[in-house]
Design a protein around this nucleic acid. Structure first.
Lengths: 235, 235
DNA sequence: TATATCATACGATACTTATCGAAGTATGGA
DNA sequence: TCCATACTTCGATAAGTATCGTATGATATA
């Protein structure tokens, strides 16, 4: 007898090309309409609807109705995290073009994980925050120090408002390209939104790719002491 | 377009009950015959053969012929590690009996991960070795210190012989019940074999479960300073 | 009110694949 | 040499399911 025979329940959902494509598309953390997802997976809307119903039924995806549109999104950060794991485990696609290769590199450098930053940039920033004593790792989460409270306030983040949100506040999220932790949860999301607001990073349409702007380079250097050269070098 | 659409290749193999059962059975790191696996998955030998061929074809499993028997085993520690992840992600089975519940607890306490120790015991030992300065974590692996070389020699482990094996020597293996790292690779395997040899632990037939003997309790206390009480308490 | 758009429901179809019986191959022992 | 055992190959079958055409319901716009 096996120990965890339930593997099939989850994997069966991912073992289908169309569903996998839909989920991968949703991994940018944004809402998408059914037609949009159908187009991305190159299937008819009925088929997408069929798959989305299954994903909703199994609590991987939630939907929100708005007028005649229905918007779909990954259900929660736990699901997003699990999908990140699956993606990192699965063999990377054969690199056919130079374009694809550099796209992969950029993804490893900085990408979204559901609703916060992931990749090399995210891990670096998290490490710096830990070294500087803004946050401390405790068990499987981070806690904010008083020094950290000042830092986040200066950055323009309302820590108190964030902590009131009904979700894990300061979650240590496993980063799968870097094989270590980065900051997730409400604070991770708050930081991500703030970077966008400040124009430090830019999120591209229909992609999880994140680009660091010139303003961002200065910002991350001034606030975090992050030398941007570090990011370009692999390991 | 998705980034890693190859998820399907792996998940499709795991999405099938019989194959999942076979793989789970093989996760004890030992060789098993085709008939044995067929029996465990409650399918006919032909069907098992069919599945095993697929698993071999996709490099998840390797086979070795010995007389009229054919022995199957997980291909390598990377595959084993990946399967560990899948198992930890998938929802645990509903606990129906007291027996099953205590079995689960014992598995979380100490089990095999392919060919080395995993679970609470393994993580504790790894932490101690790191704190005592026998090993140091560097990037995604461990390195042995000179102090550590003495320690392992005293334990009766030939570090030099192990380092000559053509496999990752001192791999930091992610532990999925504990959500942190434990020691894998050739050294992890060497330690595991040595514990068995010393009679500190016992491996049960057809199970990944590991039990710590009375001799083992003293051994782990004397050599590692591990108080066995620590293991019984959850977190 | 009429019409176009978005999404879902239903039914038919075609494709995939897990399963097993029957037959075939390889090996070891009597 | 003969037979039992272990495993694989082949072919047939049955079950599951992804897909799409058609139709229906809901909503926005004109």
């Amino acid at each position: 007898m096996s120990i965890h025979p339930n593997i099939t329940a989850l994997t069966a959902l991912l073992a289908e090309k169309s569903r996998a494509t839909i989920l991968a598309a949703l991994m940018d953390g944004k809402f998408h309409t059914a037609s949009e997802l159908a187009y991305m997976a190159t299937i008819k809307p009925q088929t997408a609807s069929f798959h989305l119903a299954k994903l909703v039924e199994n609590n991987l995806v939630i939907s929100e109705k708005n007028g005649r549109f229905r918007y779909f999104r990954i259900a929660n950060d736990k699901v997003a995290n699990t999908l990140e794991i699956f993606m990192s485990i699965s063999p990377p696609p054969e690199v056919r073009s130079l374009k694809q290769s550099s796209q992969l590199k950029r993804l490893e450098n900085a990408r979204t994980c559901y609703d916060h930053l992931a990749g090399r940039l995210s891990v670096k920033l998290t490490n710096i925050m830990e070294e500087e004593g803004y946050i401390e790792k405790s068990n499987k989460r981070f806690i904010i120090t008083t020094k950290g409270e000042h830092f986040f306030k200066e950055l323009g983040i309302d820590v108190i408002a964030l902590s009131k949100k009904r979700r894990s506040f300061c979650h240590a999220c496993l980063d799968w390209s870097e094989r270590t932790h980065h900051l997730g949860g409400a604070l991770g999301n708050g930081l991500f939104e703030r970077y966008l607001e400040l124009g430090w990073i830019e999120s591209r349409e229909n992609s999880r790719e994140i680009t660091i702007t010139t303003v961002g380079k200065s910002g991350f250097r001034d606030f975090f002491g992050l030398e941007h050269d570090l990011l370009d070098k692999t390991k």
